[in-house]
Computed example of a mutant assay.
Amino acid sequence: MPTSGQRPDTAAAQGLLVKVAMMQFDAGLTIAMRTPMLMRGALGDARGQREASKAVAEKVSAVMESSVAAGQAAMSLWMALAMSPLSPSGFGEAATRAAHSTLEPFAKRTRANASRLSRRRF
């Protein structure tokens, strides 16, 4: 949301930057918490092998969901352009919305994994 005096496209871009930064933090935490489990899984630990399978399945589903979201966002952008030309700031807002919707499947999973793995005690 724009603060007083802030342009809407600037607020949307800042929101996107915050989302990416949080995803990076959550992904780093997930990697740090998952690595020992995956290493034990490579040595035959069943729980580590289940975690590896879960990680692969989550990534595949996130890529599929993100692809659909990206396609919908691109179609929405093209339809908006076909109906009326967008100003540069309008185009920037539309591109930022497309990026948000494309990243959301990954952001949702990285948040959930970081939360789940940080609660887990070995």
Rank of each mutant, 00 (worst) to 15 (best):
P8R: 03
R97L: 10
S67N: 11
S66C: 04
G48I: 04
E93C: 12
E51V: 05
A107Y: 01
A114P: 03
W78Y: 12
V56F: 14
A52R: 02
L43A: 14
S115D: 14
T10Q: 06
P88Q: 05
F91M: 06
A57H: 10
G28V: 06
T10M: 04
Q6E: 03
R34A: 15
L81D: 14
Q14I: 07
A112I: 11
S115E: 15
A98K: 01
L29I: 13
M23K: 00
F91L: 09
R109A: 01
G48C: 09
A99K: 02
F106C: 00
L43T: 11
G90D: 01
G71K: 01
M37H: 07
L81N: 10
Q6W: 03
F122I: 14
A12T: 04
T10F: 05
M75K: 12
L29S: 10
T30M: 00
K54L: 13
A62C: 10
A62E: 03
A62V: 04
R116A: 15
G28S: 12
F106E: 02
L81A: 14
A13H: 02
T30Y: 01
G5S: 05
L38H: 07
G15S: 03
A95I: 06
S76C: 08
A69C: 02
E93P: 06
A112V: 10
M1T: 10
T10N: 06
D9A: 07
R120D: 13
W78I: 13
K59F: 15
S84M: 12
V56R: 12
S89Q: 09
V63D: 11
T10V: 12
M23F: 00
D26Q: 06
R47F: 13
T10C: 06
R120L: 14
E51W: 03
K59R: 15
E51Q: 11
R7W: 04
L77C: 04
L103G: 01
K54Y: 09
V20A: 07
G5Q: 04
E104K: 05
L38Y: 09
G15I: 01
M39Y: 10
M39N: 10
M22P: 04
F91A: 03
M37D: 07
A62W: 01
M33R: 14
P8E: 02
G44C: 09
M39A: 14
L43M: 15
A94L: 02
A82D: 13
A21G: 08
F122G: 15
Q72V: 06
S84L: 11
A112R: 15
S4A: 15
R50K: 10
F91I: 04
E65D: 04
P8S: 07
M22R: 08
M75R: 15
A55D: 08
